[in-house]
Amino acid sequence: MGKMCLDFKKVSKIFAHFQRKKFSVPLIGLAAIVILLYGLEQAGLKIPSLIEMSLLVMTPLGLAAVGESINQKAGLINIGLEGIFLISAVIGVYAAVKIGSGVLGVLIGTLAGAFIGLLFAVICVYGRANQIVAGMGINIIAIGFVPFFMLTVWRSWLLTIPQFQISALFYNPIRLQPVTVLAIIAAILASILLYKTLFGLRIRAAGEKPEAVDVAGVRVDRIRLFTATLGGALCGLGGAFLALGWFGGIVKEISAGRGFIALACVVCAGLRPLRALGFAFMFGFAEALAVTIAILYKDILPENFIYMIPYIVTLVAVIIVGKAMFPRAIGKPYVRE
């Protein structure tokens, strides 16, 4: 066992060397994608379609990941993203149908997400609840609540409402959804917020050294309430987008595990919002490519293995970075002395 540890240290050094060189992960990723795209174009695949689909997949993942990045920076970890996706999607659809407006449906879905985020923060900050357990609780509630709600209200776990679908901004050269633009803006703003503002400094400090923030006269609890609510709202927007932006309708398992891929984006990106969005795009691209390959070039690689890509990439990322990426106080309730 000792020998293996030694070897591992050597490997870590090599990785550290790369990190010092400031190779930016997204930059490498982008370059890789460009090269890949060229190759795929040569192979006869349709690049605009691949990008369109990647953007669609990216949007909910990216929104949730950006929100969760801020949340985790402040010291709260919410693994209930999948549950928030599902609940906000169904609430969004319900609101859209009741009010008769897709846009308002998305808005209310976002508010539903924010509300769950806030509730989560209250439980964790004031109730000092275990965050992992509470997050899991959200997921399990959603597994039951969404079909229960749909069956009770609509007597069906599938609903189509194309009339309330948010329409695309434009169709050429590629189709672009307004919420996709929001996701990109959210990532940029989150990045500015975290790294260029005093408030961002406080958020990060609340995750690293909550005592110090407290001493400086800033309320850690309020920061965490804010970040969790914001995180929930962005995740809720992602969920509502699934039902009202991507589709004009909903099924009971509409997110199909995407909440966990969003979590993977956060971890891979080391809690940096822009990178999280980058990973969301990359995972979206992998998914789009997987489907295309499955149809046009069967038997290259079983689809089941392609679907594993986000999770394997995440494992590789955490193996390289180790535990260093998380703020020190993450997952721990902060109690004022």
């Binding site: 379609s49 689909m53 699934l242 991507w246 509409i254 199909a256 489907v291 149809i295």
Partner: peptide, 17 residues
Amino acid sequence: FSDITKGYEAASVMYDE
């Protein structure tokens, strides 16, 4: 039989072809 995104993605590729 439940993940509609997979249906969308697959059909999109087919119509593209």
